[in-house]
């Protein structure tokens, strides 16, 4: 990897972190509202504040590469976000950052996503169906990996499908019962509530997609969670190539 390329990748990560910080500030009240229903109403404030600090720390770096930015952001989130979100969002980022030491390619992005998911699952001891951020993250990471490695989609199409998958994952948290985190103390009363951590995870992924599309000079694609990647019930339908979510050239 050339030095110029390394700096370019680093600048892309800084831009992504700034976009995430701005988005989470915009969604502060929304996230707080979700958290007040089932938790301690601090997710919006903690995330907005933590990511703002992380964006500052990222901007202060001198021509960093992608790994350095990701690690710095993770460290800042660990120190600033507080609660379980600090180690989950920040700690996982610190460890996954190592996957970007060769810069950002579709392959390193997949490795990064998989390590991040693995850390979140292990640290939080959570699996799909526990009404946590894992419900958004798992389908997003799996979809991204399949789109890159099996379907050979370009990075923006792959990321678009991942965002769609995360959006469906967020919707999936509503009808289920929380088994991890503070909401689990509510038992059945957690049913009917959308998980704040899954929601903020979706916002982060949406901003990653927007910044990636912008950096690659592609129009930000429309995400459409209502068009799943899996084939629908109509065997004659054209939807089984998943093209509804992201129009393909072929």
């Amino acid at each position: 990897m050339t030095e110029e390329r390394a700096t370019e990748d680093g600048a892309a990560v800084v831009a992504a972190v700034e976009a995430v910080a701005e988005r989470l500030e915009d969604e502060r009240d929304h996230l707080t509202q979700l958290d007040s229903a089932i938790g301690d109403a601090d997710h919006g404030g903690n995330m907005a504040r933590g990511w703002a600090e992380a964006a500052d720390a990222a901007r202060d770096l001198d021509d960093p590469d992608a790994e350095t930015v990701a690690k710095t952001v993770g460290k800042t989130l660990m120190a600033e976000v507080g609660g379980a979100s600090g180690p989950l969002f920040g700690g996982s980022l610190v460890f996954a950052a190592g996957e970007l030491d060769g810069g950002i390619t579709p392959e390193t992005a997949v490795a990064f996503a998989e390590t991040y998911l693995e850390k979140v699952e292990d640290r939080g001891d959570a699996r799909v169906g526990d009404q946590t951020m894992v419900d958004a993250l798992t389908p997003a990471v799996h979809t991204f990996k399949k789109s890159v490695e099996v379907d050979d989609l370009d990075p923006i199409e792959a990321l678009t499908k991942a965002v769609d998958a995360a959006e469906r994952g967020v919707a999936f948290t509503v009808p289920i019962r929380a088994r991890k985190g503070r909401a689990s103390y509510l038992g059945w009363r957690s049913v009917g509530h959308q998980d704040p951590g899954a929601t903020s995870t979706l916002f982060i992924l949406e901003e990653l997609l927007a910044v990636a599309a912008d950096r690659l000079g592609v129009d930000a694609p429309e995400t459409d969670a209502a068009s799943p990647t899996i084939p629908d019930d109509d065997p004659d339908g054209a939807a089984d190539d998943g093209s509804a979510a992201a129009p393909e050239e072929s």
């Binding site: 379980a84 600090g86 180690p87 700690g91 610190v94």
Partner: peptide, 14 residues
């Protein structure tokens, strides 16, 4: 309690 366990886990790993 709670997030202290996760943060200690991160620290041990680091």
């Amino acid at each position: 309690l709670g997030s202290a366990v996760m943060n200690a886990d991160v620290a041990v790993e680091l």
